[in-house]
């Protein structure tokens, strides 16, 4: 009886097996890259806002503290966006003719809110509270990036769960002195590990077991 398959099918079979595996591996790699990329996470993409607000200018050039505008960051879950009145505290006198600031003046006159585009948003099943992070020595820039270097604001991190967990497992790598929390540009000192372990104890940061338990963030 004649052979059903020609002998060249040996090669075809091999190529299709190894090629298939390679294709699967490639697909996995590509999806991993896409999942990490700004295309999927929106991280590091400057956002278009009604007013091109510069954190760099206000915090570093002018030396204004974060809390001047984000007034509720120390006492509530939400950091708080400044009311138009807060903007006008200075801009009723400064840059009063700037076209760039027209939406602020219009909002002040009409009482209509300025429709900012949200930069950081968590899924609704995540419980997050700014105040506890501030009080335990987690600085603004740890999550929000070097705001003192951002002429236009972007989301610095992916806000993936594994990104949160990384810090909840190793808070000593990120914690800083309370007096440094609101620095708009901050680089960890050389002795971060040693300082971090000391601060975790001093600020009574909960254990990684507690910090990584489900109900800490999903309540």
């Amino acid at each position: 009886m004649a052979q059903i398959f020609h002998r060249s099918f040996n090669t075809i079979a091999r190529v299709s097996i190894y090629g298939g595996l390679l294709l699967l591996g490639g697909l996995a790699y590509v999806s991993w890259v896409v999942e990490q990329s700004p295309l999927y996470t929106d991280a590091k993409l400057p956002l278009v806002q009604p007013i091109p607000f510069s954190h760099k200018h206000h915090t570093v050039d002018d030396g204004i503290d974060c809390r001047y505008c984000h007034t509720s960051v120390e006492k509530s879950a939400f950091a708080g966006l400044p009311s138009t009145e807060t903007c006008m505290t200075c801009h009723s006198q400064l840059w009063t003719n700037a076209a760039m600031l027209e939406p602020v003046r219009a909002s002040f006159l009409t009482g209509q809110s300025i429709a900012w585009t949200r930069v950081n948003a968590l899924p609704d099943f995540v419980y997050f509270n700014h105040s506890i992070h501030i009080h335990k020595g987690i600085g603004c820039t740890t999550c929000h990036g070097q705001l003192g270097e951002m002429p236009i604001t972007w989301k610095e991190n992916t806000l993936y769960m594994r990104w949160c967990i990384n810090c909840h497992k190793h808070p000593e790598r990120y914690i800083r002195r309370r007096e440094d929390v609101f620095k708009p540009i901050y680089d960890p000192p050389a002795n971060q590990e040693e300082l971090g372990r000391r601060l975790v104890k001093a600020y009574d940061v909960k254990t990684p077991t507690y910090l990584t338990s489900c109900e800490t963030c999903h309540r």
């Binding site: 939400f78 966006l81 809110s113 429709a115 948003a121 899924p123 609704d124 099943f125």
Partner: peptide
């Protein structure tokens, strides 16, 4: 459904 639940976030329009 779980990401965007039928409730308002702070300052939501």
């Amino acid at each position: 459904d779980m990401h965007i639940q039928p409730r308002f976030d702070p300052y939501a329009p």
